[in-house]
């Protein structure tokens, strides 16, 4: 980074750190923060969509659909996320490749499973064997987003399901009395009102999601915890220009501050959102706002 970084062993402390903290590995460490933030930003809406679909399925009057929704919620919620991450990613990846294989290579005669090997034709590989490294990394990232979304979608479904059922019956009955169809009632009355009931649960879920990101390294993504461990570990002079002892504590301290800051910012924003959503709702909170304004 800096011109004076040629021979770090001769530098005094301040400059040594200036070089150390801007070397290639550290830049990757800083990038991984962005990666985590990006993952959160994408996962949250996708998981919410999964949750919404799950909750709608669970509410469905069709028995198979409702059972499907309910078992999705029950099963995924019942499994610790680590256990899920440890085998689900490979399963998901194989499932994608299997489908592509069936579609793209119908003439393939070799078995897909040979012993413990899982072999699909070259065109069915995801990503393709010729793809550059960044495609592979993006693919791993997408798989991680999907996995996170499925897990947290189940929790979100549970919350939204509760939120939908918490909307006062009188509201729905009124809608029916106005002659709205079930579909209209759902979209025009139930959905706009359920958010205020679901938001406390959802914001809590968001907090849990933030704190689940250290598990990303299980999904093959070099996240902040991976780098903190890697960079903080003892470095001997043979393999680096910046040898140091066991500094994991300092790196983990940085992570702690990052997570606490994320929590604080989220809390503030969610509080504001809650205020806005409460506005005009038939709840005690909405009533209090109305009185204060009057």
């Amino acid at each position: 980074m800096f011109s004076f970084c040629e021979d770090p062993s001769t530098l005094e402390t301040a400059r040594w750190f200036a070089c150390y903290l801007t070397n290639g590995v550290h830049l990757q460490f800083y990038q991984s923060f962005l990666k985590v933030l990006l993952l959160l930003a994408i996962t949250a809406p996708v998981a919410l969509a999964f949750g919404f679909l799950g909750a709608m399925a669970a509410r469905s009057r069709l028995l198979p659909l409702s059972l499907l929704g309910k078992s999705y919620i029950a099963v995924v919620r019942g499994v610790p996320d680590i256990a899920f991450f440890l085998f689900f990613v490979i399963a998901l990846d194989q499932a994608f490749e299997y489908v592509r294989h069936r579609v793209l290579c119908p003439d393939w005669t070799d078995p897909i499973r040979q012993g413990s090997d899982f072999i699909v034709c070259a065109q069915a590989k995801l990503p393709l064997g010729t793809a550059p490294q960044w495609v592979h990394e993006t693919y791993a990232f997408v798989i991680a987003v999907i996995t996170f979304s499925i897990v947290f979608g189940a929790f979100a479904a549970n919350v939204l399901y509760g939120g939908m059922r918490a909307v006062p019956r009188a509201q729905l009955e009124t809608a029916e009395a106005y002659g709205m169809s079930p579909r209209q009632t759902f979209w025009r009355v139930l959905v706009p009102q359920m958010w205020v009931f679901a938001l406390p649960g959802l914001s809590n879920l968001w907090m849990v999601l933030i704190k689940a990101t250290p598990l990303l390294f299980l999904l093959g993504i070099q996240d902040i915890v991976y780098w903190a461990r890697e960079l903080g570990g003892t470095k001997t002079p043979n393999f680096t220009a910046y040898p140091h002892g066991d500094w994991r504590m300092w790196y983990f301290l940085a992570l702690l501050i990052f997570y606490l800051a994320m929590t604080k910012v989220s809390e503030t924003l969610l509080e504001r959102l809650m205020k806005r959503l409460t506005h005009g709702q038939a709840t005690t909170g909405g009533e209090a706002q109305r009185r204060a304004a009057a």
């Binding site: 070397n23 590995v25 990757q28």
Partner: peptide, 20 residues
């Protein structure tokens, strides 16, 4: 194109250097 899988955390066999 052969993809070589390694751990990157086991010096001197394989590790991540200062450049990342």
């Amino acid at each position: 194109t052969v993809r070589m899988g390694t751990e990157g955390a086991y010096p001197p066999y394989n590790f991540i250097n200062d450049k990342g």
